[in-house]
């Protein structure tokens, strides 16, 4: 019993240690990288703050004006002279205060404006840089897309050429085997779907649209069956084969018949 415990004690310890390390790593080391947009946000918020400060002094001056009206009302009972002197002094003091306040406000305002201007310029530069980057990226993407399209088009063209050359081989093979019965007439049309395997062997032949003349239909079917195999298809790229030659639609249309 003790032996067994001691047997598991070491792995247990190691496991606990590993978990501890993992928890510590998660808490202290694992840091989600801050997304770059965070940097832009405070800039925008500061800009609105500037506006708020410029508004604040106006409110203050309005408040002092209301105070002044209240004072004159209270001292109406005292002597007029005292009142006038006091009024004068107060007015002068008020004027000084306002003047000082105004100078201070102007100074602050100038500083703030300057800071805002600098910030705007910085932002503008950053935006320009971003726009440039963005445009360059878009251009690159467009270029990549065009290249890809061209590559696809070229590949498609090359495949079309290959397909057409093999199509011609198949056509000639079938024509050479097609013996139309004397009842065949121009305008008769028989359609077949054939399936091939990559060896070029024709494995199934199905009439999908009858001409209405059984002998004519049979002649078309026999032409295909007599061809049996198109060994040239073995030289073809397997993907090209799969894409184009697995299933072929054939239309038999004896345009060369006199009748």
């Amino acid at each position: 019993m003790i032996d067994r415990v001691s047997l598991f004690s070491l792995p247990l310890l190691v496991t606990l240690l590993l978990h501890g390390v993992l928890i510590w790593a998660v808490v202290h080391v694992w840091q989600v990288p801050e997304p770059p947009p965070n940097f832009k946000k405070p800039e925008f918020v500061k800009a609105t703050l500037v506006e708020l400060k410029t508004k604040a002094p106006e409110k203050k001056s309005a408040g002092s004006k209301i105070k002044k009206i209240d004072l004159t009302a209270n001292k109406k009972d005292n002597t007029a002279e005292l009142k006038r002197r006091q009024q004068k002094e107060a007015a002068a003091q008020k004027a000084r205060q306002i003047k000082a306040q105004k100078a201070k406000d102007a100074k602050e305002k100038a500083a703030q404006q300057k800071a805002a201007k600098e910030k705007a310029q910085r932002e503008k530069a950053a935006a320009q840089k971003r726009a440039l980057e963005e445009a360059r990226k878009r251009q690159q993407e467009a270029l990549d897309k065009a290249l890809l399209q061209e590559e696809m088009m070229l590949a498609e063209q090359a495949e079309t050429e290959v397909v057409n050359s093999y199509k011609a081989i198949i056509t000639e093979r079938i024509i050479s085997k097609w013996s139309r019965p004397p009842s065949a007439r121009r305008g008769m049309i028989c359609e077949l779907v054939i399936q091939l395997v990559p060896t070029g062997k024709i494995i199934t032949v199905n009439i999908t649209k009858s001409s209405g003349n059984q002998a004519f239909d049979r002649s078309a079917e026999q032409a295909v069956r007599a061809v049996d195999q198109i060994p040239e298809l073995q030289n073809m790229d397997i993907n090209t084969f799969e894409r184009n030659f697995r299933t072929i639609h054939l239309q038999f249309n004896p345009e060369d018949r006199r009748l």
């Binding site: 299933t247 639609h249 249309n253």
Partner: peptide, 21 residues
């Protein structure tokens, strides 16, 4: 697109050899 092409490979046989069967 290849699937489409596969469904449409179309060959018209508009001549015959007319050798005796």
């Amino acid at each position: 697109s290849a699937v489409n092409v596969q469904a449409n490979l179309f060959i018209e046989i508009n001549r015959g050899n007319d050798n005796p069967s």
